[in-house]
Amino acid sequence: MGKVIVVTSGKGGVGKTTSTANLGTALALIGKTVAVVDADVGLRNLDVVMGLESRIIYTSMDVIEKQCELQKALVRDRRVEGLMLLAASQKNDKDDIQPEQMKSICQRLTVNYDFVLVDSPAGIERGFQNAAAGAEEAIIVTTPDVSAIRDADRIIGLLQNARVEPINLVLNRFSPDLVKSGNMLDKSDVLDILNIELLGIIPEDEAVIASTNRGIPLVHSTSSSAAQAYMRIARRLSGQQIPIPDLHAKNFFSGIMEWFSRKR
């Protein structure tokens, strides 16, 4: 039996979908079987980020309406073994699905997959409730912005009330340079406010934008720092003890080194 983990944030645009795609792929790369479920009915994105949009025939709505079997609705990612996507319907609306129906889908997926990652839509309304309905655990994605942190705090409260445990934090788009210049909240400030376990820190990385637009999750190429961070998180999720490295601001020397490596 696998476990259902909802990836959520409250605020939009902090990297839920990117994180779901990369963590799903990373878990599959280290040998786990993974089903990623897009719960953003009506505004689906996960298929695009994973580069699977052309292959979707059935969606979770068709499964609920018994138009097709659950196994048939899953789209296999050809780039890595053991990774499946269950897309959301683009024609419907979040109110067309009941939390109970989502829960049942997630539970059926745990029979065959080690990890069921549910990509939650932004907000705290029905979409979020659907996504969280079947979750045993949660990953909160936040950026080090006050607005994102406040929304994350709200979501943590809701998840705690729903007895989702543990709730772990992924701090996304972290920039040590901005922290050093005093323009970004530090890791400790964020953890002070949210008071949950830190699962990992994803550094701000331009490679994320490129990979999203190409439809190839970043973790397929291990060179970028964000990809390495996602791989470490995947290993932690699978139970390995991997320390969270401290990200340091660039100094003169590392700046020169980076400039050279970019030139090549």
Binding site: I124, D151, D153, R154, I156, G157, Q160
Partner: peptide, 8 residues
């Protein structure tokens, strides 16, 4: 006995 979070 717990932290009161945003919205609570």
């Amino acid at each position: 006995p717990q932290t009161i979070r945003s919205g609570q």
